[in-house]
Computed example of a mutant assay.
Amino acid sequence: MKSIAVFFAFVALIAGAWYVTLDNGRDAGETALPEGALAAVTLPSSFSEQEEIGARAYEASCAVCHGTNASGKVGVAPPLVHKIYEPSHHGDMAFVLAAQNGVRAHHWKFGNMPPVEGLTRAEVLNIVAYVRALQRENGIH
């Protein structure tokens, strides 16, 4: 019985090491769930120039709450790569208004979102382009 337990412990150790190795050096097309993230996000193979600019603005202004690649953060903010934020439910202007005015909590239990200071409308639209690219890659149209 002890040898069976040792065998399964060894298998679990090897499987864990294999999983960690997959998450290192993540490339386009790979899906991973970062620690504390609420959604696994598959990255597109490439981004347009606007989407790349939006990605940089997102990382600077949004990732602290909404997580890397819009995957959300447990106990902080929801993932933006989620069916709730599909274009037919939350259009691009919803993102612009959310950044400008903040949002009263209504889909999630994270509390209200405050306005995001210092972002121009153009910067928010670049961020939206980036988020939409992530959404499309993850089957949200």
Rank of each mutant, 00 (worst) to 15 (best):
F10T: 13
A15D: 00
D27S: 14
E35K: 14
G29R: 03
F7K: 14
A37H: 12
A28P: 11
A28M: 04
A37C: 06
P34V: 07
E30I: 02
F7R: 14
P34C: 04
D27M: 10
G36I: 11
L38Q: 13
L38G: 09
T31V: 09
F10L: 15
Y19V: 06
A12Y: 02
A9H: 07
E35C: 00
Y19S: 05
A37M: 10
I14Y: 04
F8Y: 15
G16E: 00
W18E: 04
G36M: 09
A9W: 09
G29I: 01
L38D: 07
L33E: 07
E30P: 04
D23F: 02
G29V: 01
I14A: 13
G36D: 13
G36V: 09
L38I: 09
G25Q: 06
F10I: 11
L38A: 10
P34T: 05
R26D: 03
L13R: 03
R26H: 12
A37N: 09
V20H: 07
A28N: 08
R26L: 10
V11K: 00
A17N: 04
G36R: 14
F10R: 06
E30H: 06
R26K: 14
T21H: 11
D23I: 00
L33A: 04
L13P: 02
A15Q: 01
I14R: 02
D27P: 01
Y19I: 07
A12G: 11
E30N: 12
F10A: 15
V20G: 09
F10C: 13
Y19Q: 11
V11T: 08
G16A: 02
N24K: 15
A15F: 03
N24E: 10
L38S: 06
L38T: 08
A37S: 14
V11C: 04
A37T: 08
L38F: 06
D23G: 08
T21K: 13
P34K: 06
A17Q: 08
F8G: 07
E30G: 10
G29Q: 00
N24H: 12
A37P: 04
R26I: 06
D27T: 14
E35V: 08
D23Y: 00
P34N: 01
F8K: 09
P34Y: 08
V11I: 15
D23A: 10
W18D: 05
F7T: 10
L38H: 07
R26P: 02
G25C: 02
A15C: 02
A32H: 14
F7W: 12
R26Y: 06
A17T: 10
F7Q: 07
D27E: 13
L13K: 05
V20E: 10
L33G: 02
A15S: 03
A9Q: 06
A9S: 14
A9E: 05
F10K: 05
A9C: 14
D23N: 12
F7P: 03
L13E: 00
G29Y: 00
G25M: 05
W18Q: 05
E30W: 01
T21I: 08
T21D: 11
L22H: 12
N24Y: 15
W18P: 01
L33M: 12
F7S: 11
D23H: 06
L33P: 02
D27H: 14
L38K: 09
E30C: 06
F7E: 03
N24P: 02
F7M: 12
A28Q: 08
G29H: 00
